[in-house]
């Protein structure tokens, strides 16, 4: 499955970020408010299915993931992405209505959770913590 996956790093040394959310507004908000130089958005996806397709073509290092989405939800999507690239870092960004669902996504391999609605500062802090946490574990 990963036969046509291009795993080369970006020439500028940045980490690849994929944004997955069915809301156009949220996708744009994340893209616009991203204040981390180490990350570069390489893809955005409106549902889990599109995200998996994009990820097969070019696996990202970091993924922000909504849970409730059409076609394929965030939980199933996380499961697929981790199968393709086990060391991918996934931040679930979802409303805090159901903690059990969020925990389900984390059980499938997501690394962290950010609650909607979020400020640009909270987003930056969460992504930085995600990258830092990965550094510590290695």
């Amino acid at each position: 499955m990963a036969a046509n996956a291009k795993a080369e790093p970006l020439t500028n040394g940045k980490l690849k970020l994929m944004i997955c959310d069915d809301s156009n507004i949220i996708r744009r908000k994340i893209e616009r408010e991203l204040k981390i130089d180490r990350l570069q958005v390489i893809a955005t996806a409106a549902n889990g299915k599109l995200a998996v397709e994009a990820f097969r073509k070019e696996p990202a290092d970091v993924v922000t993931m909504d849970i409730t989405m059409p076609e394929m939800d965030g939980i199933e999507c996380v499961e697929n992405l981790v199968k393709i690239k086990p060391d991918v870092l996934i931040l679930i960004i979802s409303a805090l209505s159901d903690k059990a669902t969020a925990i389900e996504a984390l059980k499938k391999g997501a690394n962290g959770f950010l609650c909607k609605p979020f400020t640009d500062r909270q987003l930056t802090e969460a992504l930085e913590e995600l990258l830092r946490g990965a550094g510590n574990d290695d």
Partner: peptide, 13 residues
């Protein structure tokens, strides 16, 4: 090993 402790505190049931 996967989850980041600090990033899951908000969903602590």
């Amino acid at each position: 090993e996967r989850v980041n402790e600090k990033l899951v505190k908000t969903i602590n049931p």
